[in-house]
């Protein structure tokens, strides 16, 4: 087998150069619709950059800077989806004093399209979350928590479909088991359901009934555990049909997305960008303008020319 990383390195230059030049890859590319997915996870109330005092990642991060970066990308790209995989809250006095108000307001202003719930988003209880929901103009998407016995009944959706130039992108959310991780007082009667079973239902719904061209899972399960506990890599292996899992919880920095290949040839990408908004994740997909089929994934570091086998 060719060393994958070397292959990627060799092709990265070309892709980056061409993109920066604003020229299409080829004549074929002109027939493509591009979709840029930007994502964050585990922001942990990091409004301001880390103090620049010599610590690791010192001077990095900051929501006002992220806003500049996102605005720049929006100017360059016609189709942007901005997503978050949970644990928006807890980690700085901004959360202790304002209960998450500023985090939600700034994310709304950046025009986040959707977020899922992390365990720390329950830190002020269901009431604390309910209190701040009016500050979020973006929806929270979660498919495997049943809130029907709680005050948050009907406040969340299992999935949402975004249409960009005719390309239908289905986004669903998965949360981690709350028992033992979140105080019972804080999650109340929220019922956790098996992520694998729920993800299979979601794929069926989104791929089938909703005729989505791309399926994205916002996951707060965690990247990888040695023990049996469900994680993003296990989910990617066990559930075929998810195109992209945007992970969280384990604060994992990935140089490039992990690719999980299924027997049918379908590939699932798993990505995560550490924590605290130190990085903004970016993955670009291309779709055939006529068929709306995914033709290419470009992270440039990962020019996986995916032969699309599912529709």
């Amino acid at each position: 087998m060719i060393n994958r990383r070397d292959f990627l390195k060799n092709t990265a230059l070309g892709a980056a150069g061409v993109t920066l030049l604003g020229l299409p890859f080829s004549a074929e590319a002109a027939q493509n619709i591009n979709l840029t997915i930007l994502h964050t996870n585990d922001q942990h109330s990091r409004i301001d950059p880390f103090p620049d005092d010599g610590r690791k990642y010192g001077g990095m991060g900051g929501m006002a800077r992220r806003a500049t970066l996102i605005e720049q990308i929006r100017k360059e790209e016609p189709n942007v989806l901005l997503l978050d995989s949970g644990d928006i809250w807890q980690g700085t006095p901004y959360f202790n004093f304002f209960g998450g108000e500023l985090e939600f307001k700034l994310m709304s202003e950046m025009k986040y399209d959707a977020a899922t719930l992390g365990n720390h988003d329950f830190d002020n209880g269901l009431k604390g979350l309910e209190r701040q929901l009016p500050n979020a103009t973006f929806p929270f998407i979660i498919a495997n928590y049943d809130f029907s016995g709680t005050i948050l009944k009907d406040r969340f959706q299992p999935f949402k479909i975004f249409e960009k130039q005719g390309v239908r992108v289905g986004v669903f959310g998965l949360g981690i088991e709350l028992e033992g991780l979140v105080g019972k007082n804080n999650f109340g009667e929220t019922v956790y359901q098996d992520p694998v079973a729920v993800a299979r239902e979601m794929v069926q719904e989104l791929r089938g009934k909703q005729k989505c061209n791309l399926i994205v899972c916002l996951s707060h399960l965690g990247y990888s555990y040695k023990e049996e506990k469900i994680d993003d890599l296990k989910l990617a292996k066990q559930v075929e049909g998810i195109d992209l899992i945007l992970g969280a919880h384990t604060h994992t920095f990935l140089e490039q997305p992990e690719v999980v290949q299924h027997e049918s040839g379908h590939e699932t990408l798993v990505n995560q960008v550490g924590w605290s908004g130190l990085f903004l994740g970016r993955i670009d997909f291309a779709f055939n303008r006529r068929s709306k089929k995914k033709t290419d994934v470009r992270t440039a570091a990962l020019p996986v020319n995916t032969p699309v086998t599912t529709s």
């Binding site: 980056a16 993109t19 950059p49 991060g61 970066l69 490039q256 960008v273 970016r282 470009r298």
Partner: peptide, 12 residues
Amino acid sequence: SPSLAETDVPVD
């Protein structure tokens, strides 16, 4: 423009 050589664009 962020280099697409990375999927994680540093916010620095």
